[in-house]
Design a protein around this nucleic acid. Structure first.
Lengths: 326, 326
DNA sequence: TGTTGACCTGGGAACGTTCCCATCTCTTAT
DNA sequence: ATAAGAGATGGGAACGTTCCCAGGTCAACA
């Protein structure tokens, strides 16, 4: 693999001149520019970007941190973020953490080690103080979660979203609700608070059961099978926390001939296409991923362009998508 | 940010000694080792990995190239590959190409530019000769597609898979089949050949309609709506090419009160969890992603460990998962 | 009394760029 | 005629590491 020096020798010029041509700097005679350009072309020379990044102290790479890509919500979010970054001229690179602190810290370390210019985290397994320490490594933006730290945060107002969804179920006369969450995190807890607030607003002290670790279709099926096994239902509404989990629950309901929403209502979350084709179609909540992703990229751009910049919290309201499962 | 030199000065030793400590080389007195270690700890020093990679000419990073992450099949594949690489001690990094040649070439260029030690491509938008040229950049393995190039290729025997699925439909008496494919690619074409072979084996010259660009649930819904609009069905079986497309089709069928499989059979592909909860449950094909991913990582490891290595083709058979949509 | 070799240490080149600075040659304005 | 400044070019330090080489000490062995 030839280097800039080889090109320089071949053309009988200094490496400075070659560098100027590569980087489009002025003050190179047209004749030499052409000669160098064709030498580059012919030899198939590509600058060693490790050397360039090392010397310039800049990579143009943005790390997108996500628990896992094989999760429809995060997949969609990562995709949107990825597109938004590309649109701004940054190079998105995706890292999966699987909720593992060590892997997450490894990625944050890349910031300190200058391998990434910035990181967009869609979630974090770290405690707030630890996360705050990571901020010292370099620019970190949060998209989708809400942490109380000194960073730009774009998130859904989960509390209000959950409040609206829950209230929607309560208004149809449901009283004994089950709340499912993924793995515990600030946003999931905010959801739970919204859920409880809605119950409280209706003076329902009881009826707020909660179950964790619900992620996939299979989880939904398992939960549904457990619940619907006994015809004497203990609950009459389920806040599923994700469309996939809800789809699994609906499937189990049908298997056990439980009428939805008559005997038990179900709500999803995310407004994923799957929510249109369940039976019955799923009431869900749209969280405006696209808008969040665009705003994140915009803020990222501002932050990295070096102008004066203050971290800020952006919140979206999203909206309820009522269908026939409630 | 302190450098190795700062640590050296602070401890009154040479940077060589510090480097030896960092890299765990022998021949450093225990006393100095401790002193250096605590100086590193205290100052929060981290080696600049750009400098390390540049100097060592090695990054330990493996690029995983995928059209898009927001696609259940690729998401699952990327996840498996990612895990398999981590298990072997490599650092997986995911890049999305969106089927765009330019973006794909950009990623392949990273190999030449030494930003990646190797690339695993799950698909490619490039023509074979161009792809073959990219092989000169460095180690590239293919997982999931089948290209006629001098590289390690792990793939499903798509032709035989499609043959089996199609034959399965034909055996239930279906005669007028529609074949859906994603975007055209070698593996999709191999599928189509398997499909045609099955028809030919039954002496069905006709009945091999084909439609492209079917990817998502929505695509399936649209197609199904078109097809089932007219009660006088022109076809009696659909080879959907993916479980998500099939799920959309099944939804449309229900909307139009088309009995599945009686009036029209439907088969999916990939054995994604969604195939269990459609109504009726979907006949599909399991393509053994895990096994493919593991083998790819194993071969990658062999290739990069520098031992004698010959590119090879590995093919999986996968297996039919019969359910009630056929 | 050497000789050998393990252990320890520092110096400095090298990796491939970028970019500052010095130098030189022309125009052009004064 | 002289000064000023734009255009063109090369030299070389610097970025932060790794790693080879040389050289030193010290114990063991012939």
């Amino acid at each position: 693999m030839p280097t800039i020096n080889d090109i320089a020798k071949q053309c009988g010029v200094s490496k400075s001149t070659v560098s100027r041509v590569i980087n489009g700097h002025p003050y190179v005679s047209e004749q030499k520019r052409q000669m160098i350009l064709s030498a580059i072309e012919e030899s198939g020379f590509t600058p060693n970007s490790l050397a360039v990044q090392f010397r310039k102290r800049k990579t143009s790479a943005i790390g997108i941190l996500t628990p896992q890509v094989d999760h429809p919500y995060f997949a969609a979010l990562v995709q949107s973020l990825s597109n938004a970054c590309t649109a701004k001229g940054w190079k998105p690179v995706i890292f999966q953490t699987f909720g593992d602190k060590k892997r997450e810290l490894d990625v944050f370390a890349k910031l300190k080690q200058r391998e990434l210019d910035a990181i967009i985290a869609t979630s974090s397994a770290l405690e707030a103080p630890l996360l705050a320490r990571c901020l010292e490594n370099g620019p970190i933006l949060i998209c989708n979660e809400k942490y109380e730290i000194d960073a730009t945060v774009c998130s859904l107002d989960e509390e209000s979203a959950a409040y609206k969804l829950t209230m929607h179920m309560l208004q149809t006369g449901k009283r004994r609700l089950l709340f499912c969450l993924d793995h515990t995190s600030p946003s999931q807890e905010a959801r739970y608070i919204g859920f409880l607030n809605a119950l409280a607003a209706r003076n329902l002290k009881e009826g707020g059961k909660r179950i964790e670790g619900m992620v996939s279709i299979e989880d939904g099926i398992r939960l549904g099978t457990d619940l619907f096994h006994d015809k004497q239902l203990l609950i009459d509404g389920i806040f599923a926390g994700s469309d996939f989990v809800a789809a699994g629950i609906l499937h189990a309901a049908k298997q056990h001939q439980i009428a939805v929403p008559e005997k038990c209502a179900v709500t999803g979350f995310d407004n994923h296409p799957i929510s249109q084709i369940t039976d019955p179609p799923l009431t869900t909540y749209d969280n405006e991923i696209e808008a969040m992703a665009r705003k994140t990229a915009e803020q990222l751009d501002m932050q990295l362009s070096g102008n004066f910049y203050v971290p800020k919290l952006f919140q979206w309201q999203g909206y309820l998508v009522p269908r026939h499962s409630t």
